[in-house]
Write a protein that binds this DNA or RNA. Sequence first.
DNA 1: TTGCAGCCTCTACAAGTGTAGAGTAGGATC
DNA 2: GATCCTACTCTACACTTGTAGAGGCTGCAA
Lengths: 133, 133
Amino acid sequence: MARASHKLTEAEWAIMQAVWKLQPCAAPTVQEALAGARKWSYSTVKTIMDRMAAKGLLATEKIRNLVLYRSAVTRRQAQRGEVMRTIKQAFNGALTPMMQFLLEGHDFTEQQLGELEALIHKKRRQSSKRRKR
Amino acid sequence: MARASHKLTEAEWAIMQAVWKLQPCAAPTVQEALAGARKWSYSTVKTIMDRMAAKGLLATEKIRNLVLYRSAVTRRQAQRGEVMRTIKQAFNGALTPMMQFLLEGHDFTEQQLGELEALIHKKRRQSSKRRKR
DNA sequence: TTGCAGCCTCTACAAGTGTAGAGTAGGATC
DNA sequence: GATCCTACTCTACACTTGTAGAGGCTGCAA
């Protein structure tokens, strides 16, 4: 599963999202997919993607004169990197304060709260099981 | 409360943390405070701080030949900016998936789980009250 | 009054990032 | 074969960030 969290820039996130959705895909495909959101020229997209490939964020395969790109990092890995960085930087590495922050600073629907609660219950069962082992 | 979320770089976070703790403070103070963690020369620290002041992240006051710095952004604002960016970029703006991610990907002590649960209960009470209004 | 200690200002530079134009090469079309 | 479309490669440039040296001003100590 290779290297830890490369951190993605904003532009890279945009590209990555497209690649996760469309892969394997060529640069023009990605450019078109993003055309609505970001007015990037083909060159821009291609440049970013090649740099990402150089960094190991994307994998490439050359078929004739076409380059196919695939993600070399899962969405989950990228998310994890991002979240860990935030926790480390903004919350001194402490997870619960960040959770508190999230909970306090936002409104949730009843359903969302229920889901979260269920998750916590599950967590609790898991950890009590672990303790008994 | 002025402008929205300037996003801080890693170096800026380090400086900010020190300033929040020590403010009002001069650049050399900050440099010394960080000396353990980062081997920055005085110039480096001062440069970053001045750039931060230019960006509106720090406020300065000149007394004689001494420049005093204060944060122009609260810790909470900065945290909020960071978290919002993460949610937006990595989770397409959806809060609960991010919470789920956090819950699933980490171990918590019984106490932490209890705290979180309490928070959710509080949340729920608040939101049901809101609904009745 | 001469120095020294502190803090400041200026300037610089390399790497990384966002952005894109100009020109090229291969396959399809007339 | 000439043309055209498409995707590619190369090159460039401005801005931001990390990093820091060189030299300047000021007040206190000797």
